[in-house]
Design a protein around this nucleic acid. Sequence first.
RNA 1: GGGCCCGUAGCUCAGCCGGUCAGAGCGCACCCCUGAUAAGGGUGAGGUCGGCCGUUCGAUUCGGCCCGGGCCCA
Length: 963
Amino acid sequence: MRRRAPGARRRRPSDREPVRMSRDLRATLFLPTTDFPMKADLPVREPRILERWQRLDLWARLREQARGRPKFVLHDGPPYANGHLHMGTALNKILKDVINRSRQMLGFDANYVPGWDCHGLPIEWQVEQDYRRKGRDKDAVPIVAFRAECRAYAEHWIGVQSAEFQRLGVAGDWQRPYTTMAFEAEAGIFRELAKFLLSGQLYRGKKSVMWSVVEKTALADAEVEYHDHTSTTIWVRFPIVASPIASLHGASVVIWTTTPWTIPGNRAVAYGERIAYRLIEVETVRDGSLARAGERLLLATERLAETADTAGILTFATLDELDGAALAGSVCRHPLAGLEGAYGFPVPLLPGSFVTTEQGTGLVHVAPSHGEDDFELGRKHGLEVPDTVADDGTYTAAAPGFTGLHVFKAAEPVIAALVERGALLARGTLVHSYPHSWRSKAPLIFRATDQWFIPMDGPSGLRAKALAAIEATRFVPAKGKNRLRGMIETRPDWCISRQRAWGVPIAVFVDKRTGEPLRDPEVCERIARAFEEEGADAWWTRDPQEFLGDRYRKEDFEKVDDILDVWFESGSTHAIVLERRADLAWPADLYLEGSDQHRGWFHSSLLESCGTRGRAPYDCVLTHGFVVDAKGEKMSKSKGNVISPLDLMKTHGADILRLWVVSADYSEDIRIGKEILEGLGESYRRLRNTLRYLLANLAGFRPEERLEPAAMPELERWVLHRLHELGRLVVECNESFDYVRLYGAILNFCTVDLSALYFDVRKDALYCDAADSPRRRAARTVLDILFDCLTAWLAPVLVFTAEEAWLARHPGEGESVHLRLFPELPESWRDPELAARWERIRAIRRVITGALEIERKEKRIGASLQAAPVVYLPRPEDRAALAGVDLAELAITSGIEIVAEPPPAGAFTLEDVPEVAVVPRLAAGSKCVRCWQILPEVASSPESLCRRCTAVVERHAARAGAA
RNA sequence: GGGCCCGUAGCUCAGCCGGUCAGAGCGCACCCCUGAUAAGGGUGAGGUCGGCCGUUCGAUUCGGCCCGGGCCCA
């Protein structure tokens, strides 16, 4: 029993008061009823809904229904067919799905064909691991057999991932996805390559790659292990023979290297443009030092002390100080110049962004055959890339004085030669991390090898075309444009060859006499046909003469055995999927991937398409950030902060995961963690309960109940206005791909406008009014509209829940919320004047609830129906605003008195609602046992009913009697 | 180490071109309801707008540096 508030003179109407009910009043009420459960139980319910969709073949129905509508093509960036889904792939596919479903419901034909990237090293590597476990030797297996195993491996993971994506609720053509290893895809990819070949955009050049002299093969980054290695280090003089700077004449630059064997391959020296250098003259040296008093040396100021110490230079004088940029145009002599009459070429000083002052001398010896940086710098400045080392690690004739020597045994001979020519300044040893082969564990070298390239700045002007295409493309968010542009501007020629097995071959013949690739459309066509028939294996299984036909003899040609870079393959998917399939279209409306794909798929697709078609394969590129943990740090096994979408599916359900996707700003990194998931659960429950309230109060709704908006109370018209606003937001936000804004607005609408206001206020009319009361009919009409709108708007995100709710009302066999369109809302619902007025009305309501809250705290009231406050509204326009509004109904009080006069002292006010004051007052009368309002009229009712309830109950009794 | 990007209440997000209180929802606290009930309503407390230094009459909003984080290179 609650204690009565001290000083309360009037006896509080109490709920505990025994009420004599002569009839079962509850039977006369329209209490909410529905089978739609409050508890979602998504992990159990979602799979059932999924099965139903499959039974219905919902996808086929969607396609059927959308036939002839304008197409919306989101071209799927193919995930790699290896391993289970992680949060990143889940985010990506869900975002795509939300967009596709939204476009479909906006009236487009949003066909979505998912794809997989199948070729490439990771799978090859896995299969090879398997071999090793079983003690088999990959090199002993025929390439075609090896490829078959790779194919089977990819096939397996496509099946796994497909099921996992579908479990996420992702809709798409899962029966006919695309894969890069399908025969027609392999043929199509080759056809794209042939376009580059035939248009002269393919050349063979040299590139420095990681090479194992033991296995005699190039290695990819993933096959490289880093171990400590002790290297002989040397400091070498390069005499300056020409320079715009007079003080440098007769001086030497000093370089430092950990690979003496690369000296014969030297072709330049790199400096840092922003590094400070100093020209010194050696004065005194330690005994045994290779430095000479009087000689002049150039090196980075920052490296001076340490180098002098190492070289045994005791004292020196500074002759000059200069910025790196000043070194441009200077030329040195090779330190081995004259050896066997060779090395006489000039060695230019070139600016290199990779030069640092952390180690060495701030001057880097550049051997284009033996390093990535070296190679790129050489390419940029047209340096020769000498073939100094053979595949077995021995020097070729291009390294005079050392030919035949193995590079791993070359340090001492090279040093001896340098000493002999007075070029060596100092030597030492260094233990450092050095690349080794994962197979043989032998140290690796960089070696110049033959590779195939697509030129960026050749006659076709690929770079310029790509840059122009970027300008013509919409980027969401806009910053993606700069990122991609920056990469295209500076990237080197595209090296598309790999010395691997699992991929599409660079099916090219090279003329043995000229070294030029054979450019013959007929030959290319014969190859493509063969690939279509039996896959790219044909390149290895068929007799080359079959491809060459009658006009060429295979003896005259070298058959290239390299395969294509997988980025060329995925970069070609726009051609092999969008152009080939009649149910799609080229170019794509949208490419959507993580921000790493600026370097990857966005990039390769752009180049491929610009090279073959002169424009981008997409009109719009959308990028999202990466999934990180609750603290914003990347997930990793070692940190133990990895969250799996598959686990979340079991604990929370796909709809929660999907809600997560639209609740976060995907343009930046997206966090996920326990607290975030709990928050999403709250949001989900709010949405679910909103749907449940609608369903429960729409029980037995018949179309005849409907009322025209014009005949509705203002409260209903205000809800319709809000719906119209949201309807516009749906279109707007889909246009801008702004789902946070949209779903934030919908959630707010459900919380603030519906739950806290409309639903709460209308419970009285819905439960207690007569079935045919205009007020109740209006409310039910609006609930029906709300249900239509909300289920549609939520359908792209809460694919399962929206379906469950829809079926709860429309249980037809073939029914699905996903077969609907977003409702078109009449312009007549828009009423800004009413909306503005209701802003004020809600502010007035806030003053009332605020005043009642104090009464509650003071224990003078409990339920708001116990009050009938006095509201002071001195402003005439405020009183006018309330003309057609029942303020007591709105505030859920049993009565209200509006007074035009200024309020008495002590009346309740709110700072931000001027000219509104409330004096709380208890409602007079007795409590109606049916609707719980406290009204004077109830006192005179023998049954303790208000007038409204009396009428309803009597009619109910009459009907019951008649029946 | 380089390029690009990010850092607003416990959480997720708003805050246009610099100048009236830095807002919303959720969570939290307290209260109420018990005919949306493992629901619902009300009220309230939470922010050095990452830090420092500048530009300015004035900066969360501009510039620089630092710290933390991410992607891509090296």
